[in-house]
Design a protein around this nucleic acid. Structure first.
Lengths: 209, 209
DNA sequence: CACTGCTCATGACAAACGTCATGCGTGGGC
DNA sequence: GCCCACGCATGACGTTTGTCATGAGCAGTG
């Protein structure tokens, strides 16, 4: 760190929908002389477009953004810009999100509770080709385990998320009402929930929907 | 603004549970030479304690914090430290929260989508004794209107939030099951929801619970 | 090939839920 | 003092649910 400065700085894209935070982060990262911010974005699609235009080394993506969330952007970048390393920062560290992110080829998953200095270090780590996962989130993810839900159970549960009656869920999923009730029932019992609404809540907490 | 600099800088307390954002904001505010950060906090109770210890002119409080949310802290400060002006910053601008905040004597309500420069201006505005409310949030709050729910309807709805069955809600509220169902029914019809679960969702969106 | 697990469906039954009518008490407004 | 809005309750009704048994088609695995 105190030895010879790197010949070429890390080119970074920063995507976050909150100007206040994005601006503040940009200012802090600008203090690091081996990191240069080449683009900023406030939405998922914008992040993708900016990345394609500016070809950063590392894309720092907020998890929750309008348009497309960080993991979706990372997935697109993986094919459209394979040399670009992606990392996710987030306020809400749900275990399931971590899994989803890693599956999408994300190299780092960081909660917003870290310091800016630490974030800069992680950017360097990622740029060097390594991975980083917040230890606490990793522990949560391991203890939460995999989703016990089958694909259809998860799908039906998601459609039930806004409190819609079974008839509507059935129509939207093109299933019979009886089938929908069966899936909801098995999903709820797998999650140890009293009813589908509590099941939705639990699945959400664990990032399984 | 471009005239003589103020003789004494604004003493500011900054409370946010995300280190990354708090640190970044602190750095940005430090650039403003008429603003000095006298304390930082990561939780509601900590914010209160720090405020009492350092007596800032303005307390900048995040709405969502562990322990006690920004509005609760503001309420406490109003009585414990009346000279301290409070302002709320938040990611999620629900109309109801704005109402609640203003009722608690908060002088400004700002979404995190503003720029740091703007935030600094608002801090000065608040310090000067004026108020500031984000125009867009204000419009939302006005169009959303007041909660049509009675106290008990809101209370029962809140207990129903986690998907608990009527029997459990009745037990927790010390009401009969029939009464609970009546309240839930009237609340749902007032909100135009199909059932209590959708009603909970709607009420949450509008900040009425 | 047999076996297992997922998908999708049907029918039936009990429990939970939404709705309505009705009633009583209490406190504020005119 | 009367009336109305609200809080609280009960009982009854039909509908929506959760649950279970059962079965058929279809993938993947040993």
């Amino acid at each position: 760190m105190t030895s010879a400065p790197p010949p070429r700085p890390v080119r970074v894209l920063l995507a976050d929908d909150e100007h206040l935070i994005r601006g503040a982060l940009a200012a802090l990262l600008a203090l690091e002389d081996d990191i240069v911010l080449v683009a900023e974005a406030a939405t998922g699609p914008e992040a993708l477009a900016m990345a394609l235009a500016h070809r950063p080394d590392v894309a720092v993506l907020d998890l929750e953004m309008p348009g497309a969330d960080g993991v979706n952007v990372a997935t697109s970048l993986r094919t459209r810009l394979p040399d670009c390393r992606t990392m996710i920062v987030t306020s809400h560290g749900r275990p399931g999100h971590l899994k989803r992110a890693l599956a999408a080829g994300v190299r780092a998953f960081v909660p917003k509770t870290v310091s800016a200095r630490r974030l800069a270090e992680i950017i360097r780590t990622v740029h060097a080709g390594n991975r980083y996962v917040d230890p606490e989130l990793a522990a949560d993810a391991i203890s939460a385990g995999d989703s016990p839900l089958t694909a259809r159970e998860a799908e039906v549960l998601e459609l039930a998320a806004d409190g819609a009656p079974v008839a509507e869920i059935a129509a939207r999923a093109s299933l019979s009402q009886g089938t929908v009730r069966n899936y909801l029932s098995s999903a709820a019992s797998k999650l140890g929930a009293e009813n589908r609404h509590a099941a939705v809540r639990l699945a959400r907490e664990r990032g399984w929907v």
